[in-house]
Amino acid sequence: MKKSVFLGALTVAGLTAGAAAAGTLDDVKARGKLNCGVTTGLVGFAAPDANGEWQGFDVAICRAVAAATLGDPKAVEFVPTTGKTRFTALASGEIDVLARNTTWTFSRDTDLKFDFIGINYYDGQGFMVPKSLGVTSAKELDGATVCIQTGTTTELNLADFFRTNNITYTPVPIETNAEAQPLYLEGACDVYTTDASGLAATRAAFENPGEHVILPEIISKEPLGPLVRHGDNEWGDIVSFTFYALVAAEEYGITSANVEEMAAGTENPEINRILGTEGDLGAMIGLDNAWAKNAIAAVGNYGEIFAKNIGEETPVGLARGLNAQWKDGGLMYAPPFR
């Protein structure tokens, strides 16, 4: 029986070899599902709930793209990936989009042949230490043992930071954020370093969050964003502008609650163009004119996604900071829809 499955798989492999060259959008439509790579679990960003439904800040991007392309935010096959398997999963075509708090770097974009389609979260690497250690600045961490996730940019930033400040450290390599937590609490490492958003989420889960401080130094720029493969720019455009539609929706006050009402037509031509009541932006990227409306109706605008998953009302409790709209002093800035 297993053998027949195996042989069948080989035959299918041979038959479909020719069809692989078609565009990603056509593949997704033919499949009726979007294959979206997410993390195996990061508080607030992606995790399945008690019913097995994926929830989170990155997950919302997947759902928005599925709503824009297929009209159904539930038509997503979530593929959990680790820090080590994520890029091969995307490069080999197993997934169409990777929305997995991945830092946009030069070599990932060029050498690994991916396209980052935007930045959905501006992060930076920070340090957390127990208050009892009496450290007030990261520069006082000479000789410290540091818990650090392997296979990430944080590992390289850490080495750079300690080298430039001419101090030493002992790394304690760990696989996931969940593993770091008990190690840090039991004192296996003096310092835990990861993206500041991760530190906040981790600290929020402690029994006594007040006994730990996040040091003021942010030692790196971590622009986190979804990415697609090089070479299919039409698909890249779709994912990119689905994301920017969510950002623009916040700017123009379109929410999941009022999107239907606004789609009936408004005074503002920009809103009308986004929601497809004016012009034909959807046709330009090969989608239905209601693509952005579907996406916003499914997951809400950028601000809603932020507030629901990682905002100050949630246990993660992150402030908007750099991720506020440009009008509010942040960096979220969508190109004009025209």
Binding site: T40, G41, A47, T176, P315
Partner: peptide
């Protein structure tokens, strides 16, 4: 390791 420890309810 993944989903349960990464849920906001059971993290920790």
């Amino acid at each position: 390791r993944g989903p349960i420890l990464a849920s906001t309810e059971w993290n920790g």
